[in-house]
Nucleic acid binder design. Structure first.
Lengths: 193, 193
DNA sequence: CAGTTAGGACTGACTGGTCGGTACTAATTC
DNA sequence: GAATTAGTACCGACCAGTCAGTCCTAACTG
């Protein structure tokens, strides 16, 4: 059911990630998904609505498929979880022939200045992402995985900021190195003395 | 002389920073600068050419007015230079009622995937920026300002990645906190044991 | 000095094309 | 019979970019 709707969502998701929201036209989405324009506007009242739905889906999927399975994986040590998380991010970006950047970071920069709906959703998601990292850091400080002389919330914020910046560098330099080298350095800096 | 040309450059620089390159139309630049379209194309052969010129100007200005005066200020200690640099970045972003993000980071995310001219210029600039940070870190490791158990180039890369990510967060959360808190944490992590 | 030439700065009207979105009819599917 | 898909023509706004031609000043020429 809703075959067209799903095809629109799948095509738009890829196009938004590759070219950005504003730089993707509705016509391109129709062409890629093989759906007619009237059918598009039967399912979505506007391009913005589509964008917000895709963003929400991506957030939900990322939380359940990546964040919970790595940072929330209680069968690993806290530092092992963080390493697993970095690995999953690297895998995600290495699988694209040309780095496209972080879907969330790209959208944040593109939309935060011009659309409050996108900005608020992204701001809330970054906060929740940060909380998940913080939980892992906090536990790692108890177990002695990580140095305990810094507030875990502040460390989590630093990790997320650095991650987004590193992915930006990966996209700009067309090399995974800033992410792999940066994540290793983060791990070293967090090691207990 | 060239009053129109300078007005176009000044207006476009602001608009590109606030809305991005692609989201700023030539007509908007004309409206803001009060210049006619034909005059615009008398001075610039395309919107892309204008964008590259503005980017180059911004890079040159930033290197001479910010990077050299902070990270290259030999009258300060290496760690004092880094603090000064962070202060200048914070001042830059606090002076805008709404955070617009880093002009270079914004452009990198927006253009790296679709325009090689922009991507290469930005990639080269990030490398040169990194080198300036590295020089400061390297000296600080000699003086004992910073811990010496990490390669300075890797640390510099981490600092720049984190900075760009933190500015992205400032823009998304509409709060300076990720940058001020993050920079303090970086300083603490780099302190010699 | 008068007449000509050159060239940079500038103009308004215009082009072909794309944008997101609408209107409306008709067929197909569950 | 209600939800979905298809088709297609259309809209006004906007897009980057072009054009022939004017204005003004300064240098050259007789």
């Amino acid at each position: 059911m809703n075959k067209s709707k799903e095809r629109i969502l799948a095509s738009a998701k890829e196009l938004f990630h590759e070219y950005g929201f504003q730089q993707t036209s509705v016509d391109e989405i129709l062409k890629k998904s093989g759906v007619t324009k009237s059918n598009f506007y039967y399912h979505f009242k506007s391009k913005e609505e589509l964008g917000l739905i895709i963003l929400q889906r991506f957030i939900t999927l990322y939380e359940s498929d990546v964040l919970i399975k790595t940072l929330g994986n209680k069968s690993l040590s806290p530092s092992g979880r963080l390493v697993e998380f970095y690995n999953s991010v690297k895998t995600f970006h290495i699988n694209l022939e040309n780095p496209r950047g972080c879907p969330f970071g790209n959208m944040a920069i593109e939309m935060s200045g011009s659309n409050e709906n996108f900005r608020e959703k992204l701001s809330a998601f970054f906060n929740s992402w940060e909380k998940i990292i913080e939980e892992c850091i906090n536990e790692g400080m108890s177990t002695g995985d990580f140095r305990g002389d810094l507030p875990p919330g502040v460390v989590a914020q630093l990790i997320l900021s650095h991650l987004e910046g590193a992915i930006m560098m990966v996209k700009t330099h067309r090399s995974l190195e800033p992410l792999s080298s940066g994540s290793e350095t983060i791990m070293r800096l967090l090691k207990a003395a």
